[in-house]
Design a protein around this nucleic acid. Structure first.
Length: 604
DNA sequence: GTAGGGTTAG
């Protein structure tokens, strides 16, 4: 399958949207910087006329400035500190509000504490602001104490039970602080639930990577007696959850729900849907939607480029990147992650390195550790391990686990034990609990018969109580997502699944006699080889999908780890033998298996 | 006079 970008390439130098009606679009950037200028003029006039000395007037000015967003925080602070006491609650609230959305939300909490210390009384407006600040703290999960104290204060003052804004802010705070179950508890206790409260919980689950529960909450919202209708924000969160889950049927349903409820297909929604289709394996649907969007912002382009990248359509991703720039859209840090990952999945080493270089020199976007990670991945996959290591050594910032992890994966793929061992040790220095590094070491030592080292590594894992990440795969059959875990026999139809696996294995030995089930030459996959290869979760999902869908139907599998060589070849075989398209999304990318071969060209 | 919920990558 090729993405047909011919229309796109031929329109590189023209604006294809000029002929389209603007009705289905959002207005482009509505920010009016001129008004800020007007506010400053008002301020000047107030100073001249002496009106700024009036607390009420100064408060209004402050609130207006804050409403413009965090870019004017310095100015807001100056106004705030020029107001002579006694202040009123409105002024405190406005300043806390401004700080809560700024780069240092801790300042908002500090100001709130100062307000209390000086004997001012917070009101029902104060708490949503300060709770938002607590939720926005850089590491909200590590410092829940501030928000908990705010919660205590508002309870003591009798606020919790009647104000929906405070309740929503609380749910949001707990969800952001890693306590989604507490958030749920509060939600369940609320008697009147409006759409924002539902949204806070849905997003909370999504943010905690509990996507199925996010979807469940959305379904419950549909059935709720209050008959609350979802809005754009609800839809954005749910579509995003579908993308993570790979739940195509549900995603399509939401798409039609948008139509049925006469919701406007805004740039944001369109972008979320494009992302959903791409992440659910429907790259062509994603592309045609992209093509039809009359207005696109940087996210729309980034999502499409990233989507093409994970499907291995690197050339198309690069073409789109060029087109984006031609259209005057400035690429950002996320765009470059997509572009670099496109290069990486297709082995376009030279292009990738050039783009990494040009990020800074031409586009003024400083590479982050993630971009370097992509570059290490790019070199590593292509087998240029020494060059990857050299790149790592030249990185002008603190190295992280992900970066060494990229090298580790490359070492695993290219059987470089020595460098892999080094990378794993670096990872363990940064994160002693890193399961991936320890599993690698254990498998790698086993592969060369270093049983003493194997034993030592396993002991370490036991001592540190590290669990191997279980491989799990899901397959959607009739709108229901079935999940399988490696070696877990608990599925009620396991006998049939095993029978199907046996059949595949017979087909296989007939075709490739050297591949007797379970025999592998080199023992360095992501999953532990103690578990029989035959029971890798994607094989269970494949067997189930083949059994439960009509002949000719595409089988779609989502897997949490990278697919191993053995499973990859089984998928190829099954696509041929059963005449099926099998689409597997693993941790890194998509594999489309058709007629015995894979879209990745065995490069992954 | 002021408020809560937002999509993209790794």
């Amino acid at each position: 399958m090729r993405i047909r970008l011919l229309r796109s390439t031929s329109r590189l130098n023209s604006n294809p949207y000029s002929s389209l009606p603007p009705s289905a679009s959002s207005p482009p950037h509505p920010l009016p910087p001129l008004c800020m200028k007007k506010l400053k003029q008002t301020h000047a006039r107030l100073i001249r006329d002496g009106g700024v000395g009036d607390t009420l007037t100064a408060g209004k000015l402050l609130a207006d400035v804050v409403a413009f967003g965090p870019s004017n925080l310095g100015y807001a602070r100056a106004i705030f500190s020029s107001i002579k006491p006694p202040l009123n609650t409105f002024i405190w609230n406005s300043m806390i509000r401004g700080l809560a959305h700024g780069s240092s939300p801790a300042d908002a909490v500090a100001l709130y504490n100062k307000m209390l210390a000086e004997g001012y009384s917070p009101n029902n407006y104060t708490f949503p602001f300060v709770l938002t600040a607590c939720a926005n703290l850089v590491d909200a999960a590590a410092t829940p104490g501030l928000g908990l104290a705010v919660h205590g204060t508002l309870l003591r003052r009798g606020f919790e039970d009647f104000d929906p804004y405070i309740q929503t802010a609380l749910v949001n705070f707990y969800a952001n602080s890693g306590s989604i179950d507490t958030a749920r508890h509060l939600f369940d206790r609320c008697r009147r639930r409006d759409v924002a409260l539902w949204n806070a919980l849905i997003r909370g689950y999504a943010q905690s990577c509990r996507f199925s529960e996010a979807v469940q909450v959305f379904r419950r919202m549909q059935d709720d007696s209050d008959r609350i209708r979802g809005d754009e924000i609800t839809t954005l969160s749910v579509v995003s959850a579908c993308a993570h889950l790979g739940a195509l049927d549900l995603g399509r349903w939401i798409h039609s729900y948008i139509g049925k409820n006469q919701m406007r297909l805004t740039v944001n929604l369109g972008t979320a849907l494009i992302n959903m289709y791409a992440k659910c394996g429907e790259i062509e649907a994603a592309f045609s939607m992209f093509d039809e969007m009359p207005h696109k912002d940087v996210r729309t382009w980034s999502v499409m480029i990233g989507g093409l990248a994970i499907h291995g359509h690197a050339r198309e991703a690069l073409l789109l990147f060029t087109e984006m720039k031609t259209m005057g859209v400035t690429p950002d840090s996320v765009t470059f992650t997509g572009v670099l990952s496109a290069c990486s999945h297709a082995g376009l080493v030279r292009e990738g390195l050039r783009i990494l270089e040009e990020m800074k020199t031409i586009h003024g976007v400083s590479p982050t550790i993630e971009h370097y990670g992509c570059a290490v991945d790019l070199l590593g996959r292509a087998g240029r391990l020494e060059k990857a290591l050299e790149l790592i050594k030249g990185i002008p910032m603190d190295l992280d686990v992900v970066l060494w992890g990229a090298l580790l994966i490359a070492c695993r793929a290219h059987r470089n034990l020595e460098m892999g061992e080094m990378a794993a040790k670096e990872m363990l220095q940064l994160d002693p609990q890193n399961a991936g590094a320890l599993v690698f070491l254990s498998n790698a030592y086993a592969s060369v018969g270093r049983w003493d080292k194997v034993e030592e590594t396993r002991e370490t894992m036991k001592e540190r109580r590290i669990q191997k990440p279980p491989g799990s795969s899901s397959v959607e059959v009739g709108g229901i997502v079935h999940e399988f875990t490696s070696g877990d026999p608990s599925h009620p139809e396991m006998n049939q699944i095993y029978a199907m696996l046996d059949e595949i294995s017979r087909l296989r030995s007939a075709q490739e006699p050297r591949h007797v089930a379970g025999a592998v030459s080199f023992d360095m996959d992501e999953e532990d080889k103690e578990q029989c290869l035959a029971q890798h979760s994607e094989k269970l999902a494949l067997a189930f999908g083949l059994l439960k869908t009509r002949p000719g139907t595409t089988v779609r599998i989502i897997k949490n780890l990278r697919i191993c060589e053995d499973c990859h070849s089984v998928m190829k075989l099954a696509s041929e033998a059963f005449g099926r398209t099998v689409i597997v999304r693993d941790r890194a990318r998509f594999h489309h298996f058709r007629r015995g071969s894979c879209s990745c060209g065995d490069y992954w």
